[in-house]
Design a protein around this nucleic acid. Structure first.
Lengths: 164, 164
DNA sequence: TATTGTTATACTCTATAACTATA
DNA sequence: TATAGTTATAGAGTATAACAATA
């Protein structure tokens, strides 16, 4: 178990990594925002799937997934086929144009990362991927756990004596 | 230099870490969204500073910083003092109420992380912090580098023959 | 009755541009 | 003229709730 100071620092880094994400987002084509890129990436990586499965992989609400999917479908990058096994569901599939788009996205992000992380070793990058993957797993595995707060002390008129 | 596949995977992890951030955000008090929490955290960590310095630490535009600061100032958590050396500037300072708020935030995030990362060793957490810090540095150090795309092939009617 | 997916609404965060005040 | 900061506006991402169709 790590110390409190470490957790505070990790929280800070998590907050600050948004700047890196925004930098990555700036190289995306104007008609393909981050949400669309994530849909294409996951479909390319995991193959055809249903909306609910994609929402789970995106780790966002299905209403959000629906919007992103509608955006990429409107541009012809994916198709929504009816699921023969369940008429409520729709199977998502990349089109050839979607594959091209995905390839273009991959080229851009790879180029940016290669430029920014030019002095990183293969092992450094691998270790960061490994730890971030594990971090997501540590959070995702207990999704819907309501979380118990540690006796909020007062929440509104807190007046901590000193540094307990 | 890492391989292309690794960069693609890192890009995916960066995209997906947003789910962890949102999880963290859900434990914040209703009147203290993530932007406000970041302002309080940075002021608590680095001490009094000017708007421009805070914007740099937040890695967002100063207009965004101004809004976040106005939000926390309106709640009495910080004060904006005139800078005697430059009448255009304002020095930001945490109030006692702001310190209390910050302490409450720290308690909540620490508790959540301690729960989620219960099986992480001190070394694992430290390594993740170290790599994320370095990642931010690798991006931040070349900020405003316009980035050169790798000959976009065509950008609109791309029709890759196969798997080049 | 429960589940899959869509849509309407509202909120947060962000960047750009126009503006004020001061250097 | 250039810089520090504010405000207005617009765009992207997300969640909640209400709804339709099907299981």
């Amino acid at each position: 178990m790590a110390e409190r100071t470490q957790f505070e620092e990790l929280a800070r880094q998590l907050s600050a990594v948004g700047a890196v994400k925004r930098d990555m987002g700036r190289i995306l084509p104007p008609d393909c925002p981050a949400g669309s890129a994530a849909v294409l990436t996951l479909l390319g990586r995991h193959g055809d799937m249903r909306m609910s499965k994609l929402a789970e992989l995106l780790a966002v609400d299905m209403s959000v997934t629906s919007r992103h999917v509608a955006h990429v479908a409107a541009r012809g990058w994916i198709e929504r086929h009816p699921d023969p096994a369940d008429k409520r569901s729709r199977i998502l599939r990349l089109t050839p144009a979607g594959l091209d788009r995905l390839d273009e996205l991959s080229r851009r992000t790879t180029h940016l990362l290669a430029e920014r992380l030019a002095d990183w070793t293969d092992e450094d990058v691998g270790e960061l991927i490994r730890l971030m993957t594990r971090l997501r797993a540590s959070f995702g595995d207990c999704r819907s756990a309501p979380l118990r707060l540690p006796a909020p002390v007062s929440e509104e008129t807190t007046r901590t004596p000193a540094s307990t």
